[in-house]
């Protein structure tokens, strides 16, 4: 009691709060990205999905199947590279979903929500991070590819266009990741869902083997798969594979345009759902 009496007597004006402005959106987002990059520093094994795993795929496919899959006029190893890169970019969805879901499951999201910042900064930060994460994978794979004989044959402009398409597709996949990450209750559930959907979808395409060998209904499905258009576009732009066969499905005859359309369509449909799921998850 005496203690509180003393406090009463010595109570002074509140500590002057430090003079500051709430941070702008850019600083909010860069701070979120900084945080995610620190996570990699603490757990470098987080990068295995975009380093060891795709490199292993490159080597396995190139050397194990390389002998039995023949692409007339092209080398299988070179033909393979765009496929594996597209698969890695599709996994951005996975990265963003896991990261976001882990944040949402912890008290730290409450901390973020109690700060004078936009809730969107968590999303944008996670998204930019996942592009960085995937780009590390693309870089590692490019180096691996170069080491085993992969080359870009059609000049800088087309090469950059292909990388641009890859990023655009990654951007669309991020929304899928945000939707899944905001909707699932645990990282394990995210893992399960992604592994049983995105993973097979990246195989049900022209990524690792030509679609001609498939049963006709499966071939149609594979050729309409957005990943096939992306892979076909990269192959043509980099000079790693032939133009689509005359009897291929329509999208593969206009692969660049189709990739853009698919990316825009996926974003247009999934983004509103994703934002809604995220808002619902962070409101109570």
């Amino acid at each position: 009691m005496t203690d509180s009496a003393v406090q009463q007597a010595t109570r002074v004006a509140p500590a002057a709060p430090h003079d500051f402005q709430p941070p702008g959106f850019v600083r909010q987002v860069t701070t979120m990205v900084w945080r995610s990059l620190k996570h990699i520093k603490r757990q470098p094994e987080m990068l295995t999905d975009v380093t060891i795993q795709p490199v292993m795929f490159v080597l396995l496919f190139a050397f194990v199947f390389g002998g039995s899959i023949v692409i007339p006029g092209f080398i299988y190893r070179e033909w393979l590279m765009p496929g594996i890169m597209a698969q890695t970019m599709a996994f951005s969805a996975f990265i963003v979903a896991i990261g976001l879901n882990m944040d949402l499951g912890k008290g730290i999201i409450d901390r973020f929500r109690s700060l004078p910042i936009s809730r969107g900064s968590v999303l944008v930060g996670r998204s930019i991070y996942s592009i960085i994460h995937s780009s590390i994978g693309i870089f590692v794979m490019s180096v691996t590819g170069l080491a085993i004989g992969w080359r870009i044959h059609n000049g800088v402009g087309k090469a950059l266009l292909a990388f641009g398409l890859l990023l655009l597709f990654g951007f669309a996949m991020i929304w899928v990741g945000i939707l899944v990450g905001s909707s699932m209750r645990s990282p394990e559930a995210v893992n399960g869902l992604m592994f049983t959907t995105i993973f097979p979808i990246t195989f049900l395409a022209n990524t690792f083997a030509p679609t001609v060998g498939m049963a006709s209904w499966l071939r149609t499905l594979a050729e309409w798969n957005p990943i096939s258009a992306l892979v076909q576009a990269m192959r043509e732009l980099w000079g790693n594979g032939p133009a689509a066969l005359p009897d291929a499905a329509l999208p593969l005859h206009y692969p660049v345009l189709t990739t853009v359309l698919w990316s825009v369509a996926i974003t247009a449909v999934v983004a509103p759902l994703a934002v809604r799921a995220f808002i619902r998850r962070t409101t109570d």
């Binding site: 941070p23 909010q28 900084w34 996570h39 603490r42 757990q43 008290g107 730290i108 901390r111 973020f112």
Partner: peptide, 22 residues
Amino acid sequence: AATVDELLTGRENLRLMGSLYG
């Protein structure tokens, strides 16, 4: 519930929140 980032150091946590306060 704990609202600090498990994978950051104490100082980094303070820096994270300090930045987010501007």
